[in-house]
Design a protein around this nucleic acid. Structure first.
Lengths: 212, 212
DNA sequence: CTGAATGGATAGCGGTACTGTCTGCTATCC
DNA sequence: GGATAGCAGACAGTACCGCTATCCATTCAG
């Protein structure tokens, strides 16, 4: 198909597709003449993935490019790919880290047998965690780290469902994409579901009111 | 204190503070002369909250304004305030909703006894959920909704910890702020912790490798 | 043959979150 | 009291991001 049809089938305007091509989010089509190119279903699929990452995942164009680079790397273990994707989707945020928050993160990791994370600043994920705890401290929540263990427990439940879901996918390509989708779209779903859980649990604990 | 000290103690540049004042994120100081104003600890606290919402929560200035408006509303139940905060922090995202995804959301809510959400488009939270499932469908994940129930189960665990944490706070003001902080900073923490849970559970399920 | 579409290049636009500059004042220190 | 620094308020300017518009030579579809 040509770019017009790609636009029609994806709902993305032609100039935007051209922009994505320029930015390297979408591989170039196969040129059949100096000014004619062919796109296939794979292009359509990739384009929809880009839109999902941007619209639902809230990623910047640069972050999408990083994620796709990780997805496309052929000579890498699944484990490394997942790590690269996670790094790409965890933007630092430029919060200065409170040493006490850093210590809390280190203790948390040590408590759960993760010894590799000696330097918190090394990974975006740990830095994000430290930044979040720093922010909590800055607004007077000195013991937010108490929530880390319960959060991990809840997340283990969710991670088991995630892995089952991923394992059910067949090919390696599909597994990688499932990880990206599961991680990013999953984050959005989790946010929404958390709201429902708050309402339900508060009803269950306090009664039907929860009106303070 | 004057604006210079406020800047020094918060780490936010003076022009940015002036901008926040203009945008109504920060109440004006008490004027002692036509060009001298006095700020107190409450201003500092509010300023740090704004930065936390922007840096860690990733909120836009407009969203921060909405959240603060909800926090500041005096004549409203805690329940309504939490709802307003949740609406403010769930941006729509302009994804067109797949009717099948909408149906999945409705079924999910019905399954869990939430009857009020007849119209999915009514609330940002449900629209966000439907948008996420629509995006999953668009990239070929037709059964992502299978994850909703496990997600809710994990989130119930987390919600219980959240409510305990909030209940431990004394005054009404502190409770409201704890909700905002717990919800927004909590989302960031949950994202990070989810990465750790993935690593741990995959190790536990597949063995030490998880290399595909 | 003609009119719409295409690839490629480059320039422009609208929104967001600041940042800088100016003016007329005020606080403070010597 | 004079020098210096800081301040409130108004407004213009900046930097970046994610597109969008325009142009050209070419090519495809009817």
């Amino acid at each position: 198909m040509r770019v017009g049809e790609l636009a029609k089938r994806s709902g993305v305007p032609v100039p935007t597709i051209k922009y994505y091509l320029r930015e390297g989010l979408l591989p170039a089509g196969v040129l059949t003449s100096p000014n004619q190119a062919h796109y296939d279903e794979e292009h359509l699929r990739r384009l929809r993935l880009v839109r999902a990452l941007v619209d639902v995942g809230g990623l910047s164009i640069a972050a999408v490019r990083e994620v796709l680079a990780a997805v496309d790397t052929r000579d890498d273990s699944l484990h490394n790919k997942l790590g690269a994707v996670q790094e790409a989707i965890s933007q630092p945020g430029s919060v200065e880290l409170d040493p006490l928050a850093v210590r809390d993160v280190q203790l948390f990791f040590a408590r759960h047998g993760e010894t590799e994370c000696a330097d918190v600043a090394e990974s975006n994920v740990t830095r994000m965690l430290a930044a979040a705890l720093s922010a909590a401290r800055s607004v007077g929540h000195d013991h937010f780290e108490e929530l880390l263990d319960p959060y991990l427990e809840g997340m283990r439940l969710i991670a088991r469902a995630d892995l089952e879901y991923i394992a059910r996918r067949g090919s390696s390509d599909a597994v990688i994409e499932a990880m990206v989708v599961g991680t990013l779209i999953g984050d959005a779903v989790i946010k929404a579901v958390r709201r429902l859980a708050h309402v339900q649990v508060s009803r269950e604990v306090i009664g039907d009111g929860f009106d303070g």
